[in-house]
C-alpha cells in the first residue's frame, strides 16, 4: 500500500510540471500584460516595470527561474498587489476555499444521500422522482442563478441571512455552502440510489427481510453500509471539483477565497498569481484523486489482493 502511494506521489511530479508549463505558455499568449491599463503607462515606466519583474528576460529563462523559485517555496510577488507575495495571498485564501468546499461537500452528501436512499426504496414511483428532481436542482440551475436567487429570497426579501461575506456575520456561510454544494447533490443522489438499488436486491437483504425485520431497519443496518460505497469513492473527485470550481460562488458572495483570486488574476494578467494558484489547485486535485483511489483499493478487497 505504502509503495503504491509513494509511486503515485512520485509520478504526480511530472504531471504538476506539465501543468505549470502549459499554464505558463497560455498566460504569456494571452493578449495584454499585467501593466496595461486604460491610461497608457509611459514607455520608460513600462520598461522599468518589466525589468523589475524580469519580464525582459527570454521566456525560457523566466520559466526556469520561476521553477527554481517555486522549488524553494517562493511563488514570487503578485504583479497586482505590490506589497503582497503570492504565497501570502494563497495562505489567506486557501483555508477559506477549503472550508467552503468542505461545507459544500457536507451539503451535497446530506441532500444527495437522503434523496438517493428515499428514491431507491420505491424505484420508478413518485417517491423516486420527487427526491431525485429535488437533488437535481443544483445541476439544472447554474450557480450564478441559484446564488443571486437565494440572496434575493433569504437575504433581501425575508432578511434571514446575510447577502455576502464569510465569517463576518452569523450564518453567512449557509447560502454559499448550499449554492456550491447543490451542484454535487445530484451526483451523490444518483450514486447512492444506484448503490442502494444494487444492494437491496442482494440475497442477504432478502434474508434479512424474510426474517421479519422492519424495512427501515434493514435499510439502515444493512443497506446503507455497502450501498453507499460508490458515494465514498466519489467524494474525492467531488472535493477536487468543489475546490477548483468555487470561483463563481466566491464571486457572487464576495468571499475572499482562492477561486476569486484566481479569477481576478486571470483577468488582471497577474502572471505569478495565476501560476501560483494553478499549482495549488493542481496539487489539490492530484491529492484528492489519489485519496479516492486509496479509498477504493481499501474498500475493495479484491483490488487489494491484486496489488499485493
Amino acid at each position: 500500500m505504502l509503495s503504491f502511494i509513494l509511486k503515485r506521489l512520485l509520478s504526480s511530479i511530472p504531471v504538476i510540471f506539465m501543468v505549470v508549463l502549459i499554464t505558463f505558455i497560455l498566460v504569456r499568449l494571452a493578449p495584454g500584460g499585467p501593466f496595461s491599463d486604460e491610461r497608457k503607462v509611459p514607455p520608460i515606466v513600462l520598461e522599468n516595470l518589466n525589468k523589475r519583474y524580469h519580464l525582459d528576460d527570454p521566456v525560457y529563462v523566466q520559466f526556469f527561474d520561476y521553477i527554481g523559485n517555486v522549488l524553494q517555496g517562493d511563488f514570487g510577488p503578485s504583479f497586482k498587489y505590490a506589497n503582497r507575495s503570492v504565497s501570502e495571498i494563497i495562505y489567506s485564501g486557501l483555508p477559506i476555499t477549503v472550508e467552503l468546499g468542505l461545507y459544500a461537500l457536507l451539503v451535497a452528501i446530506v441532500i444527495g444521500i437522503t434523496s438517493g436512499v428515499i428514491a431507491a426504496l420505491r424505484p420508478n414511483t413518485w417517491q423516486d422522482y420527487v427526491p431525485m428532481s429535488f437533488s437535481m436542482l443544483g445541476i439544472c440551475l447554474p450557480s450564478f442563478v441559484l446564488g443571486p436567487l437565494l440572496i434575493l429570497i433569504f437575504g433581501i426579501w425575508v432578511q434571514w441571512l446575510p447577502v455576502s461575506g464569510w465569517g463576518d456575520a452569523p450564518f453567512d456561510k449557509v447560502l454559499p455552502s448550499f449554492t456550491l454544494g447543490a451542484a454535487y447533490a445530484a451526483y451523490m443522489a444518483r450514486l447512492s440510489r444506484g448503490g442502494m438499488l444494487d444492494v437491496m436486491s442482494q440475497d442477504y437483504i432478502r434474508t434479512a427481510r424474510a426474517k421479519g425485520l422492519p424495512n427501515w431497519l434493514v435499510v439502515v443496518r444493512h443497506g446503507l453500509n455497502s450501498g453507499l460505497a460508490p458515494v465514498v469513492t466519489f467524494a474525492g473527485p467531488a472535493a477536487a471539483g468543489l475546490l477548483s470550481g468555487s470561483f463563481v460562488v466566491e464571486s457572487v458572495f464576495q468571499i475572499p477565497g482562492m477561486g476569486r483570486f484566481y479569477l481576478q488574476a486571470a483577468f488582471n494578467r497577474d502572471y505569478t498569481m495565476i501560476l501560483g494558484t494553478t499549482i495549488v489547485f493542481s496539487v489539490l486535485i492530484v491529492l484528492f484523486n489519489l485519496l479516492a483511489d486509496i479509498l477504493m483499493v481499501w474498500m475493495n478487497p479484491r483490488l487489494r489482493h491484486a496489488r499485493n
Partner: peptide, 22 residues
Amino acid sequence: MPNIFHFSLLFLLSSALLCCSK
C-alpha cells in the same frame, strides 16, 4: 422509512429555525 422522512424533515426545520433566530 418514516424514520428517514422524519430525519430529513427535522433537518430542514432545524436549519430554518437557525436562520430565523437572527
